Simulated scan of single mutants.
Amino acid sequence: MTYYNAINWNEIEDSVDKSTWEKLTEQFWLDTRIPLSNDLDDWRKLSDMEKDLVGKVFGGLTLLDTVQSESGMAALKKDVRTPHEEAVLNNIEFMESVHAKSYSSIFSTLNTKSEIEEIFDWVAENPYLQKKAEIVNEIYKHGSPLEKKVASVFLETFLFYSGFFTPLYYLGNNKLPNVAEIIKLIIRDESVHGTYIGYKFQLGFNELDEREQEKLRDWMYDLLYTLYENEEAYTEYLYDGVGWTEEVKTFLRYNANKALMNLGQNPLFPDTANDVNPIVMNGISTGTSNHDFFSQVGNGYLLGTVEAMQDSDYLIGLEN
């Protein structure tokens, strides 16, 4: 009698599980190896309004990564199709914790203790942040297996990007390059996470009959409208003071379309990559700076480069 089966990586039911595991492990990184203190000169030159924006942006991102690491992956692991999928989700769960911890490394480098406390107090009280965390987490708690995957992809590929805009913008203006290095590494991870979970969604979605597909599709677009309406208000709150609001909204709509592509659905908004601030798009698409981080402690490890996901990757394994 078998009580528990061992996972066998020599018998793969879904090759995407194996290829995703290999990609995620190849691009493993830790925030402790990035010399954030080198950005202090840039930080001191920012205005108080800009410093406040950076703190709030990273506080919001910390909340979303916390939801994803503490609730999201645990919810998705209840409905895996293969044991190897659960292993991949374990990897994603850990890296979401690395992401959340990375923002604290940024805070500890750039901010005072009292400023950090103020940031986390703001995160706990901001209605727009708390609303999107509640919407996503309630789906994790009570949604169907496919609904939970939709919520995860919307978080990974859409909701993070109102925060990612800021460091990518500064990078394009030759400011805070090491802070941006962390963000680019996180984007590299999130690109794979969103693509993989979207692929798993598509497998289940394609098993539904047309009526069930249409019902789920309607729910999906309604959810996106709800999240986008809240994200517009959040963006206005954050960016009106520095005058970037409309550019961030364009970036959000572009990434909302990418989230839908991950899920095998048609784009909703007319915005394309050509509409996004080219400085920000360049930050996403180029490689990391390839600092020889680990050589600073003597072992000469060179961090791998970011590889941007292409449109064709969003339908991985499901081309018709």
Rank of each mutant, 00 (worst) to 15 (best):
residue 4 Y to S: 11
residue 11 E to F: 04
residue 12 I to A: 03
residue 13 E to N: 07
residue 15 S to V: 13
residue 15 S to C: 10
residue 16 V to G: 03
residue 20 T to W: 04
residue 21 W to Y: 15
residue 22 E to C: 10
residue 23 K to Y: 09
residue 26 E to M: 08
residue 27 Q to S: 14
residue 34 I to A: 04
residue 35 P to R: 05
residue 42 D to F: 12
residue 44 R to Y: 15
residue 47 S to W: 04
residue 50 E to Q: 14
residue 54 V to R: 00
residue 56 K to C: 11
residue 58 F to E: 03
residue 60 G to R: 02
residue 60 G to S: 06
residue 61 L to V: 12
residue 64 L to S: 02
residue 65 D to S: 08
residue 71 S to F: 12
residue 71 S to I: 02
residue 80 V to M: 11
residue 80 V to W: 05
residue 81 R to M: 12
residue 83 P to M: 08
residue 83 P to S: 05
residue 86 E to D: 10
residue 90 N to P: 02
residue 93 E to G: 03
residue 93 E to I: 02
residue 94 F to C: 08
residue 94 F to S: 11
residue 102 S to K: 06
residue 103 Y to Q: 09
residue 115 E to R: 13
residue 120 F to Q: 15
residue 122 W to R: 09
residue 122 W to N: 01
residue 131 K to L: 02
residue 133 A to V: 11
residue 134 E to Q: 15
residue 135 I to E: 08
residue 138 E to T: 12
residue 143 G to T: 03
residue 145 P to N: 04
residue 148 K to I: 09
residue 162 S to M: 11
residue 163 G to C: 06
residue 167 P to C: 05
residue 168 L to M: 08
residue 169 Y to G: 05
residue 169 Y to Q: 12
residue 169 Y to V: 01
residue 170 Y to R: 03
residue 175 K to W: 04
residue 177 P to M: 06
residue 180 A to L: 06
residue 180 A to Y: 01
residue 181 E to T: 13
residue 190 E to W: 00
residue 196 Y to N: 09
residue 206 N to H: 13
residue 207 E to A: 15
residue 209 D to C: 04
residue 209 D to N: 13
residue 210 E to V: 08
residue 216 L to C: 07
residue 221 Y to V: 07
residue 222 D to R: 11
residue 227 L to W: 05
residue 230 N to I: 02
residue 231 E to H: 09
residue 231 E to A: 05
residue 232 E to D: 13
residue 234 Y to M: 10
residue 240 D to N: 14
residue 247 E to S: 12
residue 254 Y to N: 09
residue 256 A to C: 05
residue 257 N to H: 07
residue 260 L to K: 04
residue 270 P to L: 08
residue 274 N to I: 09
residue 276 V to K: 01
residue 279 I to T: 14
residue 280 V to D: 02
residue 287 G to N: 11
residue 295 S to C: 04
residue 300 G to E: 11
residue 303 L to M: 15
residue 303 L to V: 13
residue 304 G to F: 13
residue 304 G to A: 15
residue 304 G to I: 14
residue 307 E to F: 13
residue 309 M to T: 13
residue 320 N to V: 09
residue 320 N to Y: 12
